[in-house]
């Protein structure tokens, strides 16, 4: 999963604890973070380089905006994210949000994609975790699209064959369901995500 963490030039030029904290929390949760933060112009350009007929916004899953790091591009980035149907998480610490966002929160279509959350150091992880779940549902991440090569023994292969024979499940479906059930009952993992 790939998120764009928006920032403005002034914030990007100097260390920002809030954005660093958000980046680190997202990375711990397995999200790849794209941001001009802590990247040189050329490194960043390389990260987002596409062919002339490709829109870079199509390649990300969501964007995150911290209210203190907004700039001239914020409205534009929100507009593009909405157009590409990408969820947006607008984080603020002081309870005030940009008035320009209010029409978006009133509009049925855009309100579905725009989440505005007040956060602090304690609540950040759980807010991000909830947002990731929301993004997964929105972008159809529940559809398996990560390729994973697994070598198995002939005994396991025989078992999978027997187990899925005359069912609508493929061997891969069966294994995925098995792992999903394990995740559902793994409280330690759930605690880890909620940290």
């Amino acid at each position: 999963m790939k998120f764009y963490l928006a920032t403005n030039e002034t914030v990007a030029a100097k260390a920002n604890t809030d954005l660093t904290r958000i980046t680190e929390a997202l990375e711990r949760l397995g999200v790849m973070v794209i941001s001009p933060l802590n990247k040189s112009e050329s490194e960043y350009a390389e990260m987002v380089d596409t062919g002339p007929d490709e829109m870079v916004f199509e390649s990300i899953d969501a964007i995150i905006i911290e209210s203190e790091a907004t700039g001239a591009n914020t409205g534009y980035q929100i507009a593009l994210a909405l157009t590409h149907k990408k969820p947006i998480l607008y984080l603020h610490q002081n309870g005030t949000i940009d008035p320009a966002l209010k029409p978006l929160l009133k509009n049925k279509t855009t309100a579905k994609l725009l989440k505005v959350e007040k956060y602090n150091a304690q609540s950040l992880n759980s807010i991000l975790n909830e947002f990731i779940k929301f993004v997964e549902i929105q972008s159809g991440q529940e559809t398996p699209n990560i390729k994973f090569t697994l070598r198995i023994t002939s005994k396991i292969e025989k078992y999978l064959q027997w187990k899925t024979h005359n069912t609508k499940l493929s061997k891969a479906d069966y294994l995925r369901e098995l792992i999903d059930r394990e995740i559902d009952k793994d409280d330690k993992f759930k605690n880890y995500l909620d940290k």
Partner: peptide
Amino acid sequence: IKANLINAVQSAKINLPEVALLYSNQ
């Protein structure tokens, strides 16, 4: 046309004294 239109509106806000085409990501 919305994505291109949004890019164009943003580009129309900046210092770009040109007659230009925007039909992709450039």
